[in-house]
Amino acid sequence: MINDQIRRPHSHSAALMGSNTKLILALLGLLITTATVATGYTNHTVGGDAGWFFHSKTNTSATNYTSWAANQTFSLGDYLIFRTTTNQTVIQTYNETTYRNCTTDDASDTDTFQYNGGNTDFDQSLTIEVPLTIEGANYYFSDAGDGVQCQRGMAFKILVRHGNGLPPSLNQPPPPPYVEAPSDPAQSPPVTINGESPSLNNKAAVGGANTGVMLCLLLFGVTSSLMTMMW
Results as ranks from 00 to 15, higher is better:
118 G>I: 01
89 T>G: 07
119 N>H: 15
64 N>F: 05
228 T>W: 12
3 N>P: 01
157 K>E: 07
45 T>L: 02
145 G>V: 11
89 T>P: 00
230 M>I: 03
163 G>T: 03
177 P>S: 06
50 A>V: 01
64 N>M: 13
209 A>H: 11
96 E>Y: 07
222 V>R: 04
103 T>A: 07
214 M>I: 10
105 D>P: 01
31 L>E: 04
10 H>A: 14
119 N>E: 13
207 G>S: 15
107 A>K: 00
224 S>C: 13
96 E>L: 07
188 S>K: 03
108 S>E: 08
113 F>M: 03
168 P>I: 08
172 Q>R: 08
138 N>H: 02
121 D>K: 14
152 R>T: 04
154 M>Q: 09
95 N>S: 08
68 W>L: 02
218 L>K: 00
158 I>L: 11
177 P>C: 07
32 I>T: 04
59 N>G: 14
57 K>N: 12
33 T>S: 08
61 S>N: 01
217 L>Y: 10
30 L>V: 02
96 E>H: 07
46 V>I: 14
176 P>K: 10
39 T>M: 07
169 S>E: 06
71 N>S: 09
32 I>R: 01
105 D>K: 15
204 A>Q: 06
24 I>E: 13
99 Y>S: 03
137 A>V: 01
147 G>Q: 09
55 H>N: 09
44 H>Q: 04
154 M>W: 05
190 P>I: 02
138 N>T: 07
199 S>W: 07
29 G>P: 01
164 N>W: 00
1 M>L: 05
144 A>C: 07
194 N>S: 10
168 P>R: 12
19 S>L: 08
157 K>Q: 11
91 I>G: 09
195 G>I: 10
186 A>Q: 09
2 I>P: 00
38 A>G: 09
110 T>N: 05
100 R>D: 10
123 D>K: 09
7 R>K: 15
163 G>K: 03
